[in-house]
Every structure is written in structure tokens, then in C-alpha cells.
Design a protein around this nucleic acid. Structure first.
Lengths: 253, 253
DNA sequence: AGTGTTAGAATGGTCCAGCCAATTGCGCGT
DNA sequence: ACGCGCAATTGGCTGGACCATTCTAACACT
């Protein structure tokens, strides 16, 4: 996988030179992971297929079993393979879990690599697109699911000692699911996770009025009034950002 | 790391039950990776900080050094830590490389988990948002960079035996960079990678006219005519999708 | 004083050989 | 026919050993 080189090269020059960072001594397991990745990318191995056993790979690649295990760990953490144990166990090409993407984004947010104002802007744009599509495509079932979730959330939020849960993520994912577009679900979920990380780090108190707000949104979607829905949620996202920003200023984070 | 549970639970029921998959016997290294992840998420460790050495962690967590190494491999592959060797080397919390996200998306695409029509739709929406912002914010420098890249691309494309390179990814990233929004760059790049994977798997021949098209886009951006730019690129993305679809039908992939 | 040079220490990188735990199939006994 | 347990195969994990890389600090030579 030549993923790091292009980025690195371009960030330095104008892209015209053909230089690449001096082939840093890659570690053994990287070569293994790379080969497996390529084999999957080129469809030589498809989801569900079983790779050779650890012991076999150790022979094939001429490394110790430990080296193979590290490579597998890396691939597993990327969501490319999954492991089953027992006879007929082994390393299998995974089906592809969409959550790996939002986990990446969450990690980036954990590291503070995502400026909040950029997340906010992207979120407003993305959510607006989602709402427009949702107005066209949401089925009654989709809307029911959202309404059920609102009830759950209200119950969670009104309980004494309400903790931050995954409600933030859930609502937006359900909205995105109403577009019937998997990719939009992934993107929406990713941005929600970026905010979620921040909320977990001592954010503002839980807003007890979320229920009302969300019900209004659903109402607009039912009526096919995308512009009102967008306006409503945009104001909400901005308000949320402001309350997070002040909360962080108080803590001094 | 409770990332797999919420998704799994919700996909089954209505979200009202509090059931969680029977705590599958987690492997030792997962506990380690989880603790380190949490420590980073809660800012107990910040980018640049050094974690204990492998040997120390092995003592702390009461596992073998191999176990620790597997945990580190997993975190490294998530882009959370990076390793330096030598005295004063060790495991350091990373700065956060945006490429981890697009790599995730690319992996998902490799696994065939992203329906092409969903990618196309998301790409059209996202690129439209990007172009609107770019029309407002692009500096002369931004546009210069794009024009330079177009020249590079034309040279690459017109060479005999033109190979698919990273030009597809590059152009869209540069467009996104003109919005001066890091998050939009990440999202744009991710979707471009999803398409790139497909192109590498025997896509249609390289389009030799890309230069003209891209120059027109830049022209519209300079003129602040976002709608024309959007129309142009939307038609292009749709045409690209169609040519990929037919190419795949021929191959029988 | 300045300048190489070298020895040592600390770190991750790798290997080996072995045993444990989970899973499954097969054959034996009832 | 049924069930029970053994055996085979897989990944999970251990502990110990040694190598490769890097940096520091002491030393030797100008």
C-alpha cells in the first residue's frame, strides 16, 4: 500500500518531483499486511474467504508466527479480517463494518486533529443534504423508528443523573438512514462521533428539550418541508457548538 | 471501546432493550488497546506524549511483551500512536493523520461494502457543497495549485501506457482544500478513494480530456459561478460512473 | 579547546519452542 | 439411535533470548 508516500510527497513540493521518503526500513509485518491488503483489494480474496493459518503464513512469508500475528492484528483493527478460533477457525476476510470509518474519525477527534468549527460547518452541510433527501424518501417506517428513538432518548435524558449515551449518534444515524444511502449514513455517523468525543470530555449539561426539537424535525420531514427542517437543525447545531465552546472555556481545556 | 455493541444491539431490536452481545471473551490485547484509547480520548495522554515502554506495559498489564506489541500494532494501525526506536524511542501518541479515515473508506470499498450508486450520490452532494464554498473562499493561491495539478495530470495522462495514479484523488482534494475546511477535505478524499479502488480494479480507459473539464471547473470557480461548476462536475461524475459500470459488466466482475 | 571515536545503555524488532483454550468431528460404547 | 468423550486443529499467550537502532557520554587524539 503506497498510501503514505503520495501525501507526504505532495505536502512538501509541487508534485512534480518523483521523490519518495527514503524507503524507511519497514517492519516485517508491514510487508505481510500489505500483501494481504492488496490481495483483498484486487479481489483475489473475497469476504468470507479463509486465509492460510498463522502457522502456514509464517512459513510462506518466512517469518515467525509472532510477525504474522502482528500483521493480522493490524488488518483486524482495520476491519479487513476477522478471526475465529477452534478447528475450522482461522483468519477470514471480513464483510466490512461501516463503523470502522466512524471509529477513525472519532480517533482523529480524540487527538484533537479536527477543528470544531470545521466539524460544525461540515455537519450543517451534510445534515442539510440528508434532510433534503429524507424529505423525499423517508418511509413511514423510517419515521416511526425515529419517533421511537425520541421516546427512548427522552426517558434516558429525564432520568436523574442522566449520562451521555449514544443518543446523539443514534438520532442522526436514523435521519441518515431515511435517505436509504449507506454512504451518507457512514458520513453522518462519523461527524456525530466527532462531536460525541467532545461531549464525553465534560461537555455542557444534557439538554432536556431535545425531544421537542427532534419531534419538530420529524414533523417537517413528514410535511416534506425540508427548508424548515434544515433551519431548525442548523440553529440547533450552532447552539450546541456554542454551549460546548463555553463549557470548554470554563473547564479550561 | 463499546463501539460494536450499540450498532449490533440497534440493528437487532428497537433500541429499548439493554441487551448486549454476551461479553465475548475479549482477547487480552484488546483490554490494553482499550485502556490506551480511553486514556487518549480523555486527554490523559496528549499527542507527543510517550507511553510506557513495551517492557513496562508488559509488567503493568501483567501480560507478555508479545501481548503488548499486538495491542500497539492495533493502535498504530488506527493512527493513534507511532513508534520510534533507539534510546529515547518508544510509543508516542500520534498527531492524527487525516489519511486514516480515507484509508478506512478505501478498505470498506475494497470489501465491496459500499454500493456504487450510494457513493455516487454522496459524492455529488458533497462536491456540490465543496464547490459552493470554494467559490466564496478560494484564494488565487488555491486556484494556482489546482491549475498546476491539472498540468501534471495532463502530462501523466498523455504519456503512452498511462497508468492510473493518484490524480483522481489529488484533484478533488485540492478542490476541497479551497474551502479551507479540513473536515471537508477528509470526506472528499475518502469518497475519492472509494472510487479509486474501483478504478484500479480494471476500470475504463483513462479519459484524455480530463484537463479541459477541470480547467472549465476552475474557470467557473474564478468567476464565482458555483451552479455551473456543480452542473459540470455532476455530469462528469455520472458519466464516470456509467463508464465504470459498463467496464465492469464487460469484465464480468 | 576542539574534534572524532568508541563503548554502553535503552529502546523496539524478531525469533523460538512450547503450552493453553476453544471448537469441531469422529468413533466408540451403550 | 443416541450420547459421550477423545483427538485434532485452530488461534491465544507466555517467557526468554538475541538483534538492530539510536543516543549519550566518556575518551582519545589532534
Amino acid at each position: 500500500m503506497q498510501q503514505s508516500q503520495p501525501g507526504a510527497a505532495e505536502s512538501i513540493g509541487d508534485g512534480r518531483h518523483a521523490f519518495t521518503p527514503v524507503a524507511r526500513a519497514k517492519r516485517g509485518y508491514e510487508y505481510i499486511a500489505e500483501q494481504v491488503r492488496d490481495a483483498i483489494a484486487t479481489r483475489r480474496y473475497k469476504p468470507g474467504d479463509r486465509l492460510p493459518t498463522e502457522r502456514e503464513m509464517a512459513e510462506i512469508f518466512e517469518v515467525s508466527r509472532n510477525g504474522v500475528r502482528e500483521a493480522i492484528r493490524s488488518l483486524e483493527s482495520s476491519g479487513l479480517v476477522e478471526i475465529r478460533i477452534g478447528v475450522h477457525g482461522g483468519v477470514f476476510v471480513a464483510a466490512g463494518d461501516p463503523q470502522t470509518v466512524s471509529r477513525s474519525v472519532r480517533d482523529l477527534a480524540s487527538l484533537g486533529a479536527l477543528p470544531p468549527e470545521n466539524v460544525l460547518e461540515a455537519r450543517i452541510l451534510l445534515t442539510s443534504d440528508v434532510l433534503r433527501l429524507a424529505c423525499e424518501r423517508a418511509t413511514e417506517e423510517d419515521l416511526k423508528r425515529i419517533e421511537d428513538d425520541i421516546l427512548v432518548t427522552e426517558r434516558e435524558v429525564l432520568q436523574p443523573g442522566a449520562q451521555r449515551t449514544f443518543q446523539i449518534t443514534r438520532f442522526y444515524r436514523l435521519l441518515a438512514e431515511a435517505t436509504h444511502n449507506k454512504v451518507l449514513v457512514i458520513l453522518t455517523d462519523s461527524l456525530a462521533q466527532a462531536v460525541h468525543v467532545r461531549l464525553l470530555r465534560g461537555g455542557p449539561p444534557v439538554n432536556r428539550r431535545v425531544g421537542e426539537l427532534r419531534r419538530r424535525i420529524v414533523g417537517y420531514i413528514r410535511a416534506g418541508d425540508s427548508e424548515s427542517a434544515i433551519g431548525e437543525i442548523t440553529r440547533h447545531l450552532i447552539a450546541l457548538e456554542e454551549s460546548m465552546a463555553t463549557a470548554e472555556r470554563v473547564i479550561g481545556a
